[in-house]
Simulated scan of single mutants.
Amino acid sequence: MRGAIASLACLWLAWPVAQNSTQMALLMVPFLLVTPFLIAHRKTAPGAVDYAMVFLLLLQPTFPTLITFGDSIARVLAVVSGPAFAYLGFRMVFATDERRRAATVQSMILSELAASAQASPAQIDEASWTTRFSHRLLLLVRMREKAGNKAGEGLGAETTARALQAVGEAIHQLQALRRRAATTGGQQRAITTALSRLSQLQEAPDRAGRALLTAARRQGGDPDETQPLERAAQALIDHPALFSARG
């Protein structure tokens, strides 16, 4: 806004005394010399470059000046309204604060969990998935801690990340069990049902949790195989709002 006001001042107060384009350009210099002083002050420094950019954008030192006062006001309004509308758009539509960014990252994690459950074992790149998933979990924790925000049921950032991680580990445990040849027909059916429920976990997280418990019971007594499934089932059953699209 400061740059727009300065351009109007230059156009209607300084340029009327100019006799050619060179003088018009020289008369712009005092207005531009304000920029270093704006940069030097802590409060005005963030907008200093914008001041100079808008000032130069609105002025064209062409002699004689044919623009009317109404045209100059219209140009100023056009330049000022663009960033204003962009600000409103980002403020109201896009995720511009830490709380909304965290919600966006959490939604991405839930979508990726559902996609991993739906994929065939051959489609999953374990190393790539783990790296991407871990990065998003860490990003979610940092955003929630920075925002001081809690999950829908009062869960802290670390508890939320552990619950999401438990479901991710359970999905990959199920995919590994599905690839294994030494499983019975009943075990395979339980695994397939659990993965199907997990592919829709945002619609019915509690059903996905119960399917995981069934799959864990069918696997027998090996804790290395059952505990990841039980942890994820407990997270889904205890905190359904964390995984729900409506939460």
Results as ranks from 00 to 15, higher is better:
Glu98Thr: 12
Gln202Arg: 09
Val167Glu: 04
Gln219Asn: 11
Ala127Cys: 11
Ala181Phe: 13
Ala190Asn: 09
Thr193Gln: 08
Ala9Leu: 14
His135Trp: 09
Asp206Lys: 14
Ala161Arg: 01
Leu139Met: 13
Leu66Thr: 14
Arg42Met: 05
Leu155Met: 07
Thr44Phe: 07
Arg136Ser: 05
Thr22Pro: 09
Ala216Trp: 03
Pro83Thr: 14
Gln202Thr: 12
Ser7Tyr: 01
Gly70Lys: 15
Asp97Thr: 13
Gln173Tyr: 03
Ser120Tyr: 11
Leu139Lys: 05
Gln227Thr: 13
Val54Thr: 10
Thr131Arg: 04
Leu140Cys: 07
Ser116Met: 15
Arg178Thr: 10
Phe37Gly: 03
Asp224Ile: 06
Thr68His: 07
Leu27Asn: 07
Asp97Asn: 14
Ala208Trp: 02
Ala74Cys: 05
Leu140Ala: 05
Ser134Val: 07
Arg179Gln: 15
Gln202Asp: 02
Ala182Met: 02
Ala122Asn: 13
Asp71Cys: 00
Arg75Gly: 12
Phe243Cys: 00
Ser111Met: 12
Val105Leu: 02
Leu195Pro: 00
Gly154Glu: 08
Arg101Gly: 09
Val80Tyr: 13
Ala114Gly: 12
Ala176Asn: 08
Ala18Asn: 00
Thr192Asn: 09
Ala235Thr: 00
Ala233Ile: 01
Gly82Tyr: 15
Ile124Gln: 01
Ala122Arg: 13
Leu198Ala: 08
Ala103Thr: 14
Ala4Asn: 02
Leu113Ile: 04
Ala84Pro: 10
Pro83Ser: 11
Gln106Ala: 15
Thr104Ser: 15
Gly148Trp: 03
His41Met: 04
Ala102Gln: 08
Gln173Val: 07
Lys150Ile: 07
Gln200Glu: 04
Met53Val: 13
Phe63Asn: 00
Trp129Leu: 14
Pro46Asn: 03
Arg178His: 10
Ala117Lys: 02
Met53Lys: 12
Ala86His: 15
Val49Ser: 03
Ile124Asn: 03
Thr214Ala: 06
Leu27Phe: 08
Ala235His: 03
Val105Met: 06
Gly3Gln: 02
Ala216Asn: 06
Ala204Asn: 11
Phe37Lys: 07
Ala216Cys: 06
Arg179Glu: 09
Ala78Tyr: 14
Arg189Ile: 05
Arg180Asn: 12
Pro16Thr: 06
Arg207Tyr: 08
Ala74Thr: 12
Ile39Phe: 09
Thr183Lys: 12
Ala114Ile: 04
Ala211Lys: 03
Val93Ser: 09
Arg179Asp: 11
Leu33Thr: 05
Arg99Ser: 15
Gln202Tyr: 02
Arg197Ala: 10
Arg99Trp: 15
Ala170Gly: 00
Arg144Ser: 02
Val79Asn: 08
Ala232Asp: 07
Gln202Ala: 04
Ala194Gly: 02
Leu213Pro: 07
Leu236His: 01
Thr214Met: 03
Asp238Lys: 10
Arg136Val: 01
Leu177His: 08
Gly152Leu: 11
Gln227His: 13
Thr192Gln: 07
Gly3Cys: 03
Leu174His: 04
Ala215Trp: 06
Leu77Met: 15
Leu198Val: 03
Leu236Cys: 01
